[in-house]
């Protein structure tokens, strides 16, 4: 038994646990803060005031909503499949948070009292594939929520979302392949390190991957079911889509949280793969500045989500499918061919 205990690296475990808690808290806080920013910005775009009563500038509105979610009566529809109805939000939220362990916020950092540590929980040689695997599992949350509710609106929302996510996942992954060819690695940390040239501006979006970036951006918005691709929860057709039967309780909060954490994940992936992660001017050897660059870039993508929501109307369903299969997919394949040719010539 003592051998078993000796084989455990205590420092490693404690360090990892602390990092996991930090990433988890970031994951928990991002829906709260994003929700407030989203509502304020949408109000600004639409010439309204937005939430402004709870706390200064309505800052605590999301917190108040969260407390409401916690204490509201939890209603399970009689006709629903009780087990799946309860499991679906759990699946969604677990799949969303699982990605957190490979977020590469930065490289190494030296902290007082602790010493050198890394700004990610873990890294392994296929972490990019791990992210894709977890986001592909996220579909089940929505699909099961739609089916388990046993309501026609929910079912239609669930079916739509599974069809949409399968279609756009393809072009999303294919768009990433171009960058993978260029980086020569599937490790997120290594991909960022490859982009450190040109005074911190060796980002893949500038060098041979603008097309890949565009395809990724569009597919990512469709993958996270956001405007203009929010067909699974189109209010005008499907009431609330897959979460129609979730009565603003904790389960709804979990689905809601999963959606925002997924947005965070695709934003981080876009930052890491195309926008050079923590790289930027003078960021070499300054991890804190790198961290700032990283969050600025992620913040830009989150802002883009809100901006699009305030600006664009929703696609029609056949347009969505046509666009995904007949425009994005061939373009993504073309991008792979271009990247491969350049890869052979340059490297």
């Amino acid at each position: 038994m003592s051998e078993l205990l000796n084989s455990i690296d205590t420092r490693f475990i404690i360090e990892s646990l602390i990092k996991i808690v930090i990433v988890f808290v970031i994951g928990l806080l991002s829906p709260l803060s994003m929700n407030w920013i989203e509502r304020r910005l949408l109000a600004l775009i639409q010439n309204r005031l937005g939430p402004n009563r709870v706390g200064p500038y309505g800052l605590f509105q999301s917190l108040a909503d969260g407390i409401k979610f916690l204490f509201k009566e939890d209603i399970v529809p009689l006709a629903a499949n009780r087990w799946l109805y309860t499991m679906a939000p759990v699946v969604a939220v677990v799949a969303a948070f699982m990605v957190g362990i490979v977020y590469p916020f930065g490289d190494k950092i030296t902290l007082p009292y602790i010493g050198e540590t890394t700004l990610y929980v873990t890294r392994f040689n296929v972490s990019l594939l791990y992210v894709l695997a977890m986001t592909s599992l996220a579909i089940y949350g929505i699909v099961l929520a739609g089916w388990g509710s046993n309501s026609k609106y929910s079912l239609l929302g669930g079916l739509r979302s599974s069809a949409q996510m399968i279609s756009y996942e393809l072009s999303l992954s294919l768009a990433l392949i171009g960058a993978i060819i260029q980086a020569g690695s599937l490790d997120l940390v290594k991909i960022v390190q490859q982009q450190s040239g040109w005074g911190g501006f060796g980002w893949f979006v500038f060098f041979f991957q603008p097309l890949g970036f565009l395809i990724y951006l569009i597919s990512a918005i469709a993958e996270t079911n956001r405007v203009p691709f929010d067909l699974p929860e189109a209010e005008t057709e499907l009431v609330g889509g897959f979460h129609t039967e979730y009565s603003s309780s904790l389960k709804f909060a979990m689905l809601f949280m999963a959606e925002y954490v997924n947005m965070l994940t695709v934003s981080i992936l876009a930052t890491v793969v195309f926008l050079g992660g923590w790289n930027g001017p003078w960021a070499e050897g300054r991890p804190l500045l790198g961290l700032l660059y990283f969050f600025l870039k992620v913040g830009f993508f989150m802002f883009l989500y809100i901006w699009l929501r305030g600006t664009l109307p929703r696609f029609r369903y056949d347009q969505l499918m046509n666009f995904g299969w007949k425009v994005l997919l061939p373009l993504a394949l073309l991008n792979i061919v271009i990247s491969a040719v350049i890869g052979v010539i340059v490297y």
């Binding site: 592909s136 579909i139 089940y140 699909v143 099961l144 739609g146 089916w147 079912l155 669930g158 079916l159 599974s162 069809a163 996510m165 399968i166």
Partner: peptide
């Protein structure tokens, strides 16, 4: 996902 899709 396709299996579940068809069953649904």
């Amino acid at each position: 996902v396709l299996f579940v899709f068809v069953i649904m």
